[in-house]
């Protein structure tokens, strides 16, 4: 008994953790469960199970178009953010650059600025320079938001890179560009992969920026939002479940790749 009581804080910590886990998972589980319900409204008990909602979603032209649109924006964002992020990380890690910490702080600012502020300022900006709302504007703002994550991940990896690696490549006959391609990039690969997956996921997930900057074509979150406005139905649950499963799979795969290339 004594050991039991002396372990009380530990037990309490463990119990509260599991409570939190339930709180995290329960809504997701409910959402997934409802997507299999053979009825038009969301409520317990489920009664009859069906896969019809999934069939409906997969044949829903709007859903497919919105998904493709979101993925397209995410890919464009990822490419831009990775190029800019790697470039800034290299700049900041270089030994003697004037205003190094200012560059770093500026690049990371969008990570802490609220999405709403970012969206409004971007909206004002594109009006001022006469860029129409729509795809390009969305990619612009998603990129600004994604860059800090690439910078931080790449910079962390760069700092763990032995300085001699690039020297060794140069010594063996590589000019600076070849050394970068053949040594620095492969070394950064785990961080690049992680950063890129992160870019894709934040871009697909984003609602606020897209809402302020989007045109007539809806991205996936906007489509789901519009549908929710029209009333909840298990079809929305099915859509959300598909998004959840796909993003989780991508995230886990990225984690696996990162771990493998590190070991």
């Amino acid at each position: 008994m004594r050991t039991y009581f002396s372990d009380l804080p530990k037990t309490a910590l463990g119990a509260s953790y599991w409570l939190f886990a339930v709180y995290l998972v329960l809504p997701l589980a409910l959402m997934m469960a409802m997507s299999f319900k053979d009825a038009n409204f969301i409520a317990f008990p489920i009664g009859n199970w069906t896969l019809d909602w999934y069939g409906k979603v997969l044949h829903d032209k709007q859903f497919l178009a919105a998904s493709l649109y979101s993925i397209g924006i995410a890919l464009a964002t990822t490419i831009c953010a990775t190029i800019i992020g790697v470039w800034i990380a290299l700049l900041v890690s270089a030994e003697n650059i004037w205003g190094k910490s200012a560059i770093f702080a500026l690049a990371c600012l969008p990570a802490v600025v609220p999405g709403l502020i970012n969206a409004i300022s971007m909206r004002i900006f594109i009006r001022a320079v006469d860029i129409p709302t729509g795809t390009f504007a969305i990619i612009l703002s998603h990129t600004v938001h994604a860059v800090p994550f690439v910078v931080i991940m790449v910079l962390t990896r760069l700092r763990s890179m032995p300085a001699n690696l690039v020297d060794a490549a140069r010594d063996l006959g590589a000019d600076p560009f070849v050394a970068f391609l053949r040594v620095t990039i492969p070394y950064l690969m785990p961080a690049l992969l992680g950063g890129m997956i992160f870019c894709v996921l934040t871009s697909i997930d984003d609602f606020v920026r897209t809402f302020f900057l989007g045109g007539y074509q809806p991205t996936l979150p906007m489509l789901i939002f519009a549908k929710v406005q029209g009333g909840m139905s298990p079809e929305i649950n099915a859509m959300a479940t598909i998004v959840l499963v796909v993003t989780t799979a991508v995230g886990l795969y990225a984690e696996y790749l990162t771990r493998r290339s590190r070991s």
Binding site: P162, N164, L165, D167, A168, L172, P186
Partner: peptide, 12 residues
């Protein structure tokens, strides 16, 4: 060509 102190072998 140099043999570096920490070898600097390309890990990948």
């Amino acid at each position: 060509n140099i043999v570096f102190q920490d070898y600097a072998l390309f890990p990948h």
